[in-house]
């Protein structure tokens, strides 16, 4: 029996030991400053463990050390979306954005409020909204039939409105098509083509809101400047 259990567990153990070895080797290379080599390891691991925020975080670290703030920001952003409560991710994202002249917390917004508003992942918020709705649904129905516990019905309604509204707002923010300038420098043009004059140079790391696309060009708004124009698809990284 023990043999059977061991045989069943063996592939899992082998995978885990392979993963640990890869992570250890990557860390060693990172310490030696061989960031380009580390990058490949983490990207391979990311294919095996998709959307893991810590792998995105590590990839972001490699890019940051290699001087590519744009790609570092993109990866920190992905990590932060998946795990907004991790302080290291928040710190590095904030630092990468600051390095590019962007702000992590919008001007005029208290940091604590920003942290609270983004404190839950979209998935967690969805479940909270769902729970609020169920609570209100049950209490409301009970009241309609029995006309009892009126105060609880009001509380459940408030919870439902807050969680539902929060989720809806965050969903709207998440639905924005965000990108970051990945090339060392990108040109903002007045139309989708090289024949249109360049209106501005945008340095790497600046956040962009994607509006439209034509062929290999995107219409974007530079978030921090409010500038609108067309940018070549190859110079940006979609988040």
């Amino acid at each position: 029996m023990k043999k059977w259990i061991l045989m069943l567990c063996l592939p899992v153990l082998l995978c885990l030991s392979g993963f640990a070895a890869d992570m250890q080797q990557a860390e060693q290379l990172y310490r030696e400053g061989k960031y380009a080599a580390v990058l490949g390891t983490y990207e391979d691991l990311l294919r095996a463990y998709p959307n893991d925020p810590f792998l995105y975080y590590n990839i972001g670290n490699c890019y940051f050390k290699m001087g590519s703030r744009g790609l570092a920001t993109a990866n920190y952003y992905r990590a932060w979306r998946a795990n907004p409560r991790d302080k290291d991710i928040t710190h590095n994202l904030s630092l990468a954005l600051t390095a590019s002249g962007e702000k992590f917390v919008p001007a005029g917004m208290p940091a604590a409020l920003h942290q609270a508003f983004f404190g839950l992942t979209l998935q967690e918020l969805k479940v909270a909204a769902l729970a609020g709705l169920w609570f209100f649904g049950i209490m409301g129905t009970f009241w309609l039939f029995k006309r009892r516990f009126g105060a609880l019905v009001i509380v459940s309604l408030l919870i439902c409105i807050v969680t539902g509204g929060w989720y809806a707002w965050r969903s709207k923010i998440a639905s924005q098509k965000l990108a970051v300038v990945a090339a060392p420098i990108a040109e903002l043009r007045s139309g989708p083509g090289d024949n249109f004059p360049a209106s501005a140079n945008v340095a790497q790391g600046h956040l962009l809101l994607l509006q439209d696309s034509k062929d290999q060009w995107y219409e974007v708004i530079v978030k921090s400047q409010g500038l609108k124009g067309w940018i070549e698809a190859d110079t940006i990284e979609k988040i």
Binding site: Q24, E27, F54, N61, K65, A72, L95, Q123
Partner: peptide
């Protein structure tokens, strides 16, 4: 100021 160090494990799954 510098970025913080690597994570040596995967994130806790949701």
């Amino acid at each position: 100021q510098d970025i913080r160090y690597l994570k040596s494990a995967l994130s806790e799954p949701t």
